[in-house]
Design a protein around this nucleic acid. Structure first.
Length: 578
RNA sequence: GCGCCCAUAGCUCAGAGGACAGAGCGACAGACUUCUAAUCUGUUGGUCGCAGGUUCGAAUCCUGCUGGGCGCACCA
């Protein structure tokens, strides 16, 4: 077990029982990183009252029963009753050494692997993806990768918007322009253009509008020819989605598509069952679920409308069918919704309704990973100057273009193809990392300059650290996988780096439990900083002696491994050189 | 009107009820004949929106207030 916090927690836990009795089994020893030592245990202070002894006495008794000689070279009671631990260099080195032979790099497999459907991305057919989609796609993908690495069975659920009344006009427009036409081809590259054209005709051409309305009816009644046309629309849109996903380096494939249309066959059943159980009632012509505590304007109860007064179904019904499917058919233990913050109320109502209906048992936990808005530098939701939402592809292209400019300036020695590849990794990595490194629920301010900076908590900074390590090995360090010589810690920068390396497992575990990728980012940034400090003060290839050189090579190899693996969990590539 | 979220350095953001609230950017001062200076080191910078409360201890938990964002019946 390389994680110092876990080791200390166990030892302090044992000491608590030894010092104060078995009733203290399981007491949280409150181990925290310390500014006065490596770690500190804060447990003595809250215990003082319970034991009716001064906190310093409690801490002293704790230390007396503590067995950490193999781990620490200094333990002291400090301040009002903190217990400070200084880990021994030998122990840190030994643990780091152990990580060298561990392909999981200290990341434990989850104690209880779960089945976890992760609902993310969810673009709409015939619509451009915007920055909002970008963020749920990137965060969801990072969570999926991380949960999988922890040993959970992740089931990606791309809940695309592939159903609804707008398909009437989309199908009619597709028919009019022809399936093989250039206009139809817009669906693959610039879907908004196609959508707008259909919309304009719907608004201005009454004959077209009438056809569109009839088409919706045909679609909903399962007319074969109409369904084929609908499928054609979906297939064309898929090309666009996959283009974006490929550009982004996201793991979603066609196999993960689980769009709204998939639930059509269950919608009436869902309504009938809710009505039969007395959970849903008719109100103003619509079938609604009213839940306690959900009131809106003028104290009126807010309904979850599951069947509209025209007999159609909205997204509430689809979401209910989806949650039922995920529990009953996918056997979910935890359901992750990576969806915008404004949906919070809706999701709460869906959970509660599903729970009342018996579709969501107590031991299945739905979690809303709510995604905050992406803002422009003016503090408003990111839009173009004209006021329309910014096209995702343009955004990605601009990030890559900016990265290309920098690479052209700094690395004229590289050939064009290599530079292009680096610019791609850096530009895309910068955008993704920017989405991941701030708390998912906070609104964050989009800025190319900040996300592409080589300083601070950015993708390029982490990539640069990894590239420099790779450069060391290219320049004569052999292969990183062969750097397995004993790690010996002399310099403070070596010690700090090794200690940081031991924290990878805990960082990944936190992302699993809290579903907050920014914690992994913060850890990786800390690691990259620790490495850069080490890099400045501790020559590797020109180390004073062979043993030191080998040790530093091992530390570098380990750092590279953690950086690359950590970035991979976030879905960010680490280029060979920069 | 009701509900949810947010308020931390000039700016962008972290912050597991614990010691003196941390990074980066910016500003200022330094470091390349040395493994990538796209880097590093140091200095500067704060009534944690306001007022109460709980606690040995509050940026963190509770209440109220102010200011901002979002949601609140047939779009998803």
């Amino acid at each position: 077990m390389p994680d110092p916090q876990l080791v200390l927690a166990e030892r302090v836990g044992d000491a608590l029982v030894a010092a104060f009795g078995p009733e203290f089994t399981g007491t949280d020893p409150v181990i925290r990183p310390s500014q006065f030592a490596d770690y500190q245990a804060n447990v003595a202070l809250p215990l003082a009252k319970r034991l009716r002894r001064p906190p310093r006495d409690v801490a002293a008794a704790l230390v007396e029963h503590l067995d950490v000689a193999d781990v620490c070279d200094e333990v002291e009671v400090s301040g009002p009753g903190f217990v400070n631990f200084r880990l021994s260099e030998g122990w840190i080195a030994g643990q780091a050494q152990g990580l060298l032979g561990d392909d999981r790099l200290g990341v434990p497999v989850a104690a209880k692997p779960q089945v976890i459907p992760v609902d993310y991305s969810a673009p709409n057919i015939a619509k451009e993806m915007h920055v909002g989609h970008l963020r749920t796609t990137v965060v969801g993908d990072a969570l999926a990768r991380t949960l999988e690495f922890r040993g959970h069975q992740v089931i990606r659920q791309n809940h695309i918007g592939d159903w609804g009344t707008m398909f009437g006009m989309l199908i009619e427009h597709l028919l009019d322009v022809g399936e093989e036409s250039a206009e139809a081809g817009l669906l693959k590259s610039d879907p908004n253009a196609f959508y707008q054209a259909a919309r304009n005709r719907f608004a201005s051409d009454e004959e077209f509008a009438e056809r569109s309305r009839r088409r919706v009816v045909a679609l909903q009644s399962g007319d074969e020819a109409t369904l084929e046309l609908w499928q054609e629309l979906v297939d064309l849109s898929k090309v666009y989605f996959n283009k974006v996903y490929a550009k982004l380096g996201v793991t979603l494939t066609d196999a993960d598509l689980a769009g709204e249309s998939m639930y059509n066959k269950w919608l009436s059943e869902v309504c009938d069952e809710l009505e039969a159980k007395g959970i849903a009632v008719m109100s103003e012509g619509a079938l609604c679920v009213f839940l306690d505590g959900f009131t809106g304007r003028e104290g009126k109860p807010v309904p979850l409308i599951i069947r509209k007064s025209d007999g159609g179904y909205g997204y509430a019904t689809t979401d209910l069918a989806a949650i039922r499917y995920r529990v009953r058919d996918l056997h979910a233990d935890r359901i992750v919704y990576v969806i915008g913050t404004p949906q919070a109320l809706h999701l709460k109502m869906v959970y509660e309704t599903a729970h009342k209906a018996g579709w969501l048992p107590d031991d299945v936990r739905p979690v809303h990973v709510n995604i905050g808005n992406v803002l422009g530098t003016d503090g408003k939701i990111l839009r173009t100057r004209a006021g329309s939402s910014i096209r995702l592809m343009e955004l990605l292209d601009e990030a890559v273009a900016r990265a290309r400019e920098v690479v052209a300036e700094t690395r004229p020695d590289l050939d064009e193809g290599t530079r292009a590849k680096i610019a791609e990794d850096v530009g895309i990595g910068a955008i993704k990392y920017a989405d991941l490194s701030t708390a998912h629920d906070s609104e964050y301010t989009f800025s190319f300059d900040r996300m592409l900076a080589l300083n601070g908590n950015t993708g390029p900074y982490l990539q640069y650290a990894a590239a420099r390590i790779r450069s060391i090995f290219r320049k004569g360090g052999g292969a990183p996988s062969e750097a397995t010589e004993p790690i010996v810690l002399g310099e403070p920068a070596e010690r700090a780096l090794a200690l940081t390396l031991l924290g990878f497992g805990d960082a990944v575990r936190q992302v699993d439990e809290l579903l907050e990728p920014h914690r992994l980012c913060a850890y990786l940034y800390e690691l990259a900083s620790a490495f850069t400090t080490f890099y400045e003060s501790c020559p590797v290839l020109k180390a004073p002696d062979d043993a030191t050189r080998d040790s530093r090579l091992a530390l570098s190899a380990l750092t590279l491994g953690v950086l690359v693996q950590g970035l991979a969990l976030l879905g960010v590539r680490a280029p060979e050189e920069m």
